[in-house]
Nucleic acid binder design. Structure first.
Length: 556
RNA sequence: AGACCCAUGGUGUAAUUGGCAACACUCCGGUUUUUGGUGCCGUCAUUCUAGGUUCGAGUCCUAGUGGGUCUACCA
């Protein structure tokens, strides 16, 4: 579908209307506003792509702004990690790196302005009392006894708060709006609190900090953000967002809410993810099983695939649960185009070619990526002794099985057609230990005009040149697509005990050792794998995604 | 219980804003293939319900039903 024909999502429709009407001179300016108190995950990727892609489309710019108004939770290490992840995803905020904390003085001045206008007051009530007086969704709140303090007294008290004359929590500044509003956020929200905590950027300069509602919209306004895109749970904050902008008479940024993206089998709750890390259920925030961007990166998911995925998931306002298969499809699609192919036998079974000379070895070329018209190729060693995949041989195969079995032909990829004559079994266990074959010299790959047929094609490695590798196999961390969606069960009840299994017995052609960390290969006929840190001196690969397969062995 | 938001195949998003319900993923078939991959072709919907407006409704109106959000000195 061409770009012009592609239908617009509701945010693009709003923006096109704004451009048409000449609002803000047709300028489009968005921002991505993470709080530096955790690592970015797939949900953030959605927000990032929405914000950056929309300005790419309409010729605007996107700011990176750290929403760092709560010094207790925030840290510079998160700032660095977040920046790295956004760059990795493929987006560039250029020189527009901002911090809400850059605006602390301006925000403070805004607060005094509100006090002057009689629209804010210092409240001595405790947090519990404030909550109490707030009422609930069906009961109007009660005015605080401090609500009608004179302007000058409020001003003095607020300055004293700033100057550190009160204990943490002793007083707060509240906006004076409407304690009977059906919208709880309008019931005199707290806008400043006393908190003696070291801020990662402003240090100990301040002991009062603005709340989200008093910082976010104003920060948008200060930066001239035209369209402030956020998730649906901020819908109820919008009247407050607009109220501050109006009362302060500052640049009118507009907040637009969209539905958060939910992905099957993934959770994005910071607290619950932290528990997985702390309890050692995963090996850190960047474990390939984590939905963090660093986790997906280590799993081998290319940034382009994540961008495509977010695009294909779409933007709307209804609840959604995106199937994991869509993500996998985007990953396969990208990797199919970009990954070099290699032969790796995950579960080796020895195969002897009886009529191949004992001491002979030959080099056979194999193309690196058949999807790439300019693909290079590399050489494979071939000899009398090989390994094939154990699952590619059956003593007594079902009708649709067209791999190797006694009396059958099969092609060895990039090599010869072979015929299975016999096999050996372990007398104790009954396990097949060796397959005995003969090859047809005239069926050499690339110059085969023999007319000999073989239905199946097998990958293989040559016994003496093959190198041992370690393979980490990953499955979903949870056995349920919505581990948080059960009233009667905890998400930890759905942990998949097999989410990581380590295979130390795989054999690879030497070519795979040439990869660097984070390189992705297609192990032919099996799937995509991403080079990880070596284990026990052996190259190690993380499973990214399997190849699709129309062969479904009967599991009964 | 209230206020606000939402409702289109199994999933997600469309429908030139009132004019033949489309695209992608999944599933299932077929075809091509020296990867059972890729590519290509095909099957899969009473648009939540009931009324109403209209020549004509997924779209507008009313009521209902279902789901979500909101009552932190977090963001």
């Amino acid at each position: 579908m061409s770009e012009e024909n592609k239908s617009l999502n509701f945010i693009e429709q709003i923006i096109e209307q704004d451009i048409k009407s000449g609002k803000h001179e047709g300028r489009v300016h968005t921002r991505f506003p993470p709080e530096p108190n955790g690592y970015l995950h797939i949900g953030h990727a959605k927000a990032i792509t929405i914000n950056f892609e929309i300005t790419k489309k309409y010729g605007g710019t996107t700011n990176l702004r750290f929403d760092d108004t709560n010094p207790v939770a925030e840290d510079t290490k998160y700032v660095e990690a977040i920046k790295q992840d956004i760059k990795w995803l493929g987006y560039d905020w250029e020189d527009r790196e901002y911090y809400a904390s850059d605006y602390f003085q301006t925000l403070y001045d805004y607060a005094e302005k509100l006090i002057h206008k009689g629209l804010a007051y210092v409240d001595d009530s405790t947090a519990e009392q404030i909550a109490q007086m707030k009422g609930d969704t069906r009961t109007p709140g009660k005015n605080s006894p401090y609500r009608d303090r004179p302007v000058l007294e409020n001003l003095q008290l607020f300055r004293d708060m700033k100057d550190g004359k009160y204990e943490d929590g002793a007083k707060v500044l509240r906006a004076k709006i409407d304690m009977s509003s059906p919208n709880m956020h309008m019931r005199d929200p707290v806008i400043y609190r006393i908190k003696r905590a070291h801020h990662h950027r402003t240090g100990d300069q301040w002991c009062i900090y603005p709340m989200y509602d008093f910082a976010h919209g104003q920060s948008d306004s200060i930066e001239g953000i035209t369209h402030s895109l956020c998730s649906l749970e901020f819908r109820h904050h919008r009247p407050l967002y607009d109220w501050f902008i109006q009362q302060l008479n500052i640049f009118p940024s507009r907040q637009i809410e969209f539905a958060r993206m939910n992905v099957a089998y993934m959770i994005t709750s910071k607290r619950r993810l932290l528990k997985l890390v702390q309890d050692g259920i995963v090996n850190g925030w960047d474990d390939p099983r984590m939905p963090t961007l660093s986790g997906l990166r280590n799993k081998g998911f290319p940034p382009a695939a994540i961008r495509t995925f977010c695009d294909k998931a779409g933007v709307a306002k209804r609840d959604n649960l995106i199937e994991y298969e869509l993500l996998e499809s985007c990953v396969r699609d990208e990797l199919n185009k970009t990954s070099l192919r290699a032969m790796v036998v995950l579960d080796p079974l020895k195969l002897i070619i009886k009529n191949y000379p004992q001491d002979q070895t030959e080099q056979l070329p194999v193309i690196d990526n058949p999807e790439d018209p300019h693909a290079s190729s590399h050489m494979l060693s071939f000899s009398r002794e090989l390994f094939i995949e154990r699952s590619d041989f059956m003593v007594d195969p079902p009708k649709k099985f067209f791999r190797l079995a006694p009396g059958r032909n099969v092609r060895l990829k990039a090599a010869y057609i072979i015929h299975c004559d016999d096999f050996k079994k372990d007398p104790e266990t009954g396990e097949v230990t060796e397959v005995l074959c003969t090859y047809y010299p005239e069926t050499k790959s690339g110059s085969d005009d023999s007319g000999i047929k073989a239905k199946g094609v097998l990958h293989w490695v040559e016994a003496h040149s093959a190198i041992p590798i370690v393979v980490n196999n990953y499955q979903q961390l949870f056995t349920d697509p919505t581990p948080l969606g059960h009233d009667d069960k905890d998400y930890l009840d759905f942990l998949n005990p097999d989410s990581l299994t380590v295979n130390e017995g795989a054999l690879a052609e030497p070519f795979v050792a040439q990869t660097k960390q984070l390189d992705t290969l297609q192990f032919m006929r099996q799937g995509y794998y991403c080079r990880s840190a070596d284990q026990n001196g052996k190259p190690c690969f993380n499973h990214t995604v399997s190849l699709k397969s129309r062969w479904k062995p009967k599991t009964q």
